[in-house]
Design a protein around this nucleic acid. Structure first.
Lengths: 189, 189
DNA sequence: AGATTCTTTTCACATTTGTGAAAAAGCGAT
DNA sequence: ATCGCTTTTTCACAAATGTGAAAAGAATCT
């Protein structure tokens, strides 16, 4: 909870009463490995701040393969509304790869908070912009790199993650087959 | 100019006096082919709305090659500040591929407008979120596709652009060599 | 410990993409 | 039209990555 408030305060100022109001609406949320925070086609019921664990954002391509779009680590905010008044259908699945804990808010409570807490919307928008920018800047350069450089980029982008998640997800994120990833890992070992 | 105001109004409401104030600060800006709207390492002096032309956003990789990050078409907004008070150094070059026209604002005037026009900041943030989301969702899936599928994706993402820009930029955007792009184009012809 | 299941690696071969050079095509200026 | 310049295509060969199957390794359960 403390981490969440500090996270918000990095992007703008909030008064103590505002902080208390936000706290009063927060709920704890736990996901087991494999559970989804969001799923394709279902309107998201919650938004939240992940305090521990790892998620992957993935979608199914034309052939039905699950493509990992990116990973989300602890201490990141999860909401994906272009317009807070109109919750979008999530276009991808957000699945827990490990056990995950959240400071979460129901969609209803969160919308009320956005109205009640002046400046909160601005803070959240800055967070979303930062989030999208980071993901875009990490993912875009991968396309021009070979398999070895991609894997090294992944190790830099997500340090300490490689031993906590299945390599099949890493290969998918990096746009290569798992066998190729295995080949790369052997070659740099 | 009319297009710019309509563009803004898609993302939020503005009163006529607000619109007039914005208009009063706008300046026309033209770029010739090859000119840069921004350049790496130089603080951006303008923000603006592109009314005609095509830009590419590119950066230099470790080997000095120019990698096309994405293209920007007419009727899009160009600003890249996470925080309007602190103009970031642009991390990439924004270069005109064709002649480009803009409704532009000096950094100084624009910051003043953000203060004076209540709601403008929110509108711009929504625009940036939309922009980043679109670029991420277009670019990310390319990584898992082969050269043919990438080119077909490009044709969908940027219809009518293929005949207006050099294919070398397209190849770079798609993460393949120009010879490979040529091979793809032959195979689907 | 043994059995089961899932994950990761390894291998031989097929396919795709990169490489470097040359030819062809397009384009603007005179 | 011709020249000079740039862009695009083509080609033969090299290198990288995919494919499908099997083996090895880890983790979980009883």
């Amino acid at each position: 909870m403390k981490e969440f408030i500090n996270f918000l305060l990095q992007f703008g100022n909030l008064s103590q009463p505002q902080i208390d109001l936000i706290k009063s609406k927060s709920i704890g949320l736990e996901l087991k490995k494999g559970d989804c925070f969001w799923e394709t086609g279902k309107a998201s019921k919650h938004v939240g701040f992940m305090t521990s664990g790892i998620l992957r954002v993935y979608y199914n391509n034309d052939l039905g393969d699950e493509i990992t779009h990116y990973f989300v680590e602890e201490n990141h905010w999860l909401s994906d509304w272009d317009n807070p008044d109109q919750p979008l259908m999530p276009v991808a699945n957000l699945q827990a790869i490990t056990e995950c804990s959240f400071v979460a808010f129901s969609k209803k409570d969160w919308n009320a908070l956005l109205q009640a807490v002046v400046g909160l919307n601005d803070i959240i928008q800055r967070i979303i912009i930062k989030h999208k920018s980071t993901k875009l800047e990490r993912r875009s350069p991968l396309i021009t790199e070979n398999t070895t450089a991609r894997y090294l980029s992944f190790l830099e982008q997500y340090p300490n993650m490689v031993n906590r998640i299945p390599l099949s997800y890493v290969a998918s994120y990096l746009g290569m087959k798992q066998q190729s990833l295995s080949r790369v890992r052997k070659s740099i070992r």
